[in-house]
């Protein structure tokens, strides 16, 4: 009780004091945040104005701000190339699949893990599920190649064993969305389900006991107690991933599809790959930056809309 009053007076005082005293009172705390502030300034904020390249005819020697301003000319190509729609569509659809399929699967698995009573089974399966989260995108790409390549791929070996004709996956754009989405789920489900499982562990057991005594069966417990308790976790995770909806897990796509096999592009091209490729194939800093800026701004708008919607429904869950 003592401490509580103390805090209150402390907070009361805070409102009265000037900025100067506030600063000096929080001096240490500010200093403690300083490394992080400097870090984000250097690695995130300073490059931001560099997006100005998108509006110039970038000259290597004159640098970003010495180059000639050309207005929106560089953006014209994005629109003219006709790619923009395809890229935007792919990026968003892949992300929606990742986010919603991913979270649904994670929740289902968390609930299942929760209903499994054998501790050893739970521990072993959790470890196995989590295993794919530990490997790099490079290895995921290589595994996909090892599974699906024509010459010695695991799947084609299986087909040959069963006396069937091998399939040339790398010439069939249509199968790649499935492969990429499955690869993503394969890698992230274990991790996500642990987050949800952790949320389930945090539920007050007496609630469940009480429901049981009132005659609720297992399915009803899940439906009315467990699932609702995951709501806040789900909203936070989904909102966080929506922030990156225009980003596309570059490493996964880059390592699985590569940049050489243009055959697959209609189904696999995302904005980030395009940004990267414009730099590789055309060495074109302005165009690459223009595409990146489009991605950033579009993403920014989407997350703001999502956040506003959430705020309207329940301000508790809003990110900012």
């Amino acid at each position: 009780m003592m401490t509580k009053t103390k805090t209150e007076t402390l907070q009361l005082n805070v409102h009265k004091v000037t900025l100067r005293t506030k600063l000096s009172r929080n001096r240490t705390l500010i200093l403690m945040c300083l490394p992080a502030i400097v870090f984000f300034i250097i690695f995130n904020y300073i490059p931001m104005p560099g997006a100005y390249i998108a509006f110039t005819d970038f000259n290597y020697n004159k640098g970003i701000f010495g180059s000639r301003f050309v207005g929106f000319k560089n953006f014209e190509f994005l629109f003219n190339s006709g790619k923009l729609w395809q890229l935007t569509r792919n990026t968003i659809l892949y992300n929606l699949a990742f986010i919603f399929l991913g979270n649904a699967l994670q929740i289902i698995i968390a609930l299942m893990l929760n209903s499994i009573l054998s501790k050893s089974f739970r521990k072993v399966s959790q470890t196995l599920l989590f295993l794919p989260y530990f490997i790099s995108a490079v290895l995921v790409g290589f595994m996909v190649y090892a599974l699906f390549n024509y010459d010695y791929g695991f799947i084609n070996g299986l087909l040959k064993n069963m006396g069937k004709e091998p399939i040339s996956f790398y010439s069939k754009p249509g199968v790649w969305p499935v492969i990429i989405i499955v690869a993503n789920l394969w890698q992230s489900t274990g991790y996500g389900s642990i987050v949800y499982f952790a949320a389930l562990c945090g539920i007050d057991q007496s609630l469940i006991e009480a429901a049981r005594i009132d005659g609720a069966n297992g399915a009803q417990v899940i439906r009315y107690i467990l699932l609702p308790s995951l709501k806040s976790t789900a909203i936070i995770l989904i909102l966080f991933s929506l922030g990156g909806i225009m980003k596309g897990n570059f490493g996964l796509f880059y390592n699985i599809v590569g940049t050489a096999n243009a055959n697959l592009q209609p189904m696999t091209d995302i904005i980030e790959l395009y940004v990267y490729r414009t730099l590789i194939n055309q060495f074109n800093f302005p165009y690459s930056t223009a595409a990146g800026l489009y991605q950033s701004i579009f993403g920014f708008i989407i997350v703001n809309i999502a956040n506003a919607v959430v705020r309207k429904i329940d301000p508790e869950y809003a990110l900012f």
């Binding site: 000319k73 190509f77 003219n80 010439s171 096999n261 243009a262 055959n263």
Partner: peptide
């Protein structure tokens, strides 16, 4: 013609490998 060149390069890079290797 920078805009057009960029777009042409993109088209070239997309189609030529599959044409050149019969894919």
């Amino acid at each position: 013609v920078q805009t057009e060149i960029a777009a042409l390069t993109e088209v070239y890079n997309q189609y030529i490998p599959s044409l050149a290797y019969g894919k």
